[in-house]
Computed example of a mutant assay.
Amino acid sequence: MFLEGHGERSPLGQANFDLGQFGQELKRKGVNLALLNLAKTPDIPANTTALVIAGPRANLLPGEVGLIQDYVKKGGNLLWLADPGDQHGLQALAEQLNLTFLPGTVVDASTQLFGIDDPTFALVAEYVHHPITADFKELTLFPVAAALQSGKDADFHATAVLRTLARSWTEIGPLKGDIRFNADSGEKEGPLTIGYAWCATCRRPPPRLRKARPNKPNPANNAFSCWATATSCPTPTWATAATSTWA
């Protein structure tokens, strides 16, 4: 179930902003897609397998956010795909998950090794042993990602499922010209977490990393940045919501 009505990325659209390729792949795998406008249908259907919030560009109403929070609290599965910057009314949801979005956009000098001239692509080369990343075997790229931090919470157990390399950082300044890491401006150096998974009740030992195969990296989708997903145990509750110089 994809939330709509706030300029979200559409699983049925074909624009670069949209998630049409992602939607087609879900259909190919037999997943039924539906759109949900909470202003028209002020309830999340009980048969919703997962709710997807894909980068809204307009503020959600407090009542809509409250419905989503209740859905998560009751164990509903949530996939939150978030862009850097304004979270458009979803701050209360982030607080519920004890999630913080760091200022700036993740840039990664490592991507120059693959001939990528755009500094806003973040590279992930290692994956934890987790259901979300179980079949991830190659390098992946995440364009225009935000760095995330998750605090300890009695209600949710967080696992960092997507981590950038050491030569990445959160760029707060303009994304053009000579870009350099500047700790004095509050920028954070990598590795950085751009994806978390939250489990509502389970407690697990720290995950082990496994390296991806050094093939050519594949973009994660049409154009989404960092992502957040949320589900509940025994099927874990995921919310996954993405070095010094770029010349």
Rank of each mutant, 00 (worst) to 15 (best):
G173N: 15
F114S: 05
S232N: 03
V65W: 07
N182P: 03
F136Y: 14
A200Y: 06
C202R: 12
N47F: 09
G190W: 00
G55H: 08
K40E: 15
Q96T: 12
G20E: 00
L51Y: 04
K216G: 06
L36H: 08
N218L: 15
A39V: 11
N37H: 09
N221R: 04
I68M: 11
Q87L: 10
L97F: 09
A166V: 13
P56T: 10
V128E: 02
P207I: 05
V107H: 02
L139G: 00
F2E: 00
L19N: 01
G151I: 10
Q21Y: 04
S232Y: 06
I53W: 08
P103S: 09
R210I: 07
A158E: 01
E138S: 13
W169C: 06
T245V: 10
S168D: 07
G115P: 15
P11E: 03
R213F: 03
Y127A: 05
E4G: 01
P236V: 10
P207Y: 05
F101L: 15
F142Y: 14
L81T: 06
G89E: 05
E25G: 05
L79K: 01
G195F: 02
Q24N: 13
N215H: 08
Y71A: 02
E187N: 10
T245F: 04
P84S: 10
N77D: 07
A39D: 14
L99S: 02
G66N: 14
N98T: 15
K211C: 00
A241S: 06
D117Y: 07
F156T: 13
I194Q: 00
Q24E: 13
Q14F: 08
A122N: 05
L67S: 02
P143A: 12
P143Y: 12
K176E: 13
A200G: 11
P205R: 11
D178W: 05
A220S: 12
G63N: 11
L61S: 04
G5L: 12
L67C: 03
E189P: 03
F136H: 07
E189V: 03
W227L: 12
S168Q: 08
V144L: 12
S232I: 07
A46I: 10
I44S: 01
S232M: 06
G5I: 11
R163E: 01
L123R: 04
T41G: 00
L139Q: 00
A147W: 01
L209V: 08
R9W: 07
T243Q: 06
K29H: 14
L113C: 00
L123H: 02
D108K: 02
V161W: 01
L26M: 08
E187H: 08
A247G: 12
A94G: 11
S244H: 12
D43F: 14
A46E: 13
A239L: 03
E64G: 01
G177H: 08
D18R: 12
T240Q: 09
V124G: 00
V72N: 00
L51Q: 04
D155P: 08
P206S: 09
T245R: 14
A228Y: 13
F22H: 13
